[in-house]
């Protein structure tokens, strides 16, 4: 088990390899379809994303009477929907990590290699375990997209993920896809 602690950096993520199980402690920014399209359309992010991690997640959130937010469910959403945009966000805003589920494609893999970024896979459906790792909600941006689509700034402790695409051009998804296909052909 490896640890990745805030502040994050390109050097730190370059050390990570496909298959590494990692516990992340520090800051995450959620962002899914609306946010990625917004950035792709040329809008500046409302927070500096340099050396930050983006989490593909539409959390379920609750606000108490004093206005304090808590996250009650926070599993990853399917990442491939952001494939057309992700590479640009990596290039233009300097993010060093993307968390999601299902993996991403060649464009993102190339951007990870070129600019220094990794794709972390969280366990899909593990909404409760992952929500428990969120220790505070520190900010809310682009609220107009609706709460699940907004950018949530979260502090997490020991957030469990697996590196499935690293910054050296390796993708566990590609490997497993190929090996399972080969196996299937044998079994058919």
């Amino acid at each position: 088990m490896k640890k990745l602690n805030y502040p994050f950096s390109v050097e730190a993520v370059r050390d990570l390899k496909v298959g590494d199980m990692v516990l992340i402690t520090g800051k995450l920014f959620t962002g899914r379809d609306a946010v990625h399209k917004y950035l792709h359309d040329g809008n500046k992010p409302p927070v500096d994303l340099k050396n930050q991690i983006i989490y593909h997640c539409g959390p379920v959130t609750l606000q108490d009477k004093k206005g304090k937010w808590t996250v009650t469910a926070a599993g990853p959403t399917t990442s491939i929907r952001e494939e057309p945009y992700q590479w640009e966000v990596i290039r233009d805003y300097g993010i060093v990590g993307v968390i999601g589920k299902g993996g991403m494609g060649q464009k993102t893999l190339d951007a990870c290699k070129e600019y220094g970024c990794v794709y972390f896979h969280a366990v899909g459906g593990a909404a409760q375990v992952l929500a428990e790792k969120i220790i505070s909600v520190d900010g809310l941006y682009l609220k107009e997209f609706g709460l699940p689509e907004a950018i949530w700034e979260l502090s997490v402790e020991d957030f469990p993920v697996v590196v499935t695409m690293d910054s050296h051009g390796n993708s566990l998804h590609k490997e497993i896809e190929a090996s399972s296909k080969e196996m299937l052909n044998k079994l058919l």
């Binding site: 366990v123 899909g124 697996v162 566990l172 998804h173 497993i176 399972s180 196996m183």
Partner: peptide, 8 residues
């Protein structure tokens, strides 16, 4: 097939 949980 070796796909495993989450495709890991």
């Amino acid at each position: 097939l070796g796909i495993g949980p989450m495709g890991f």
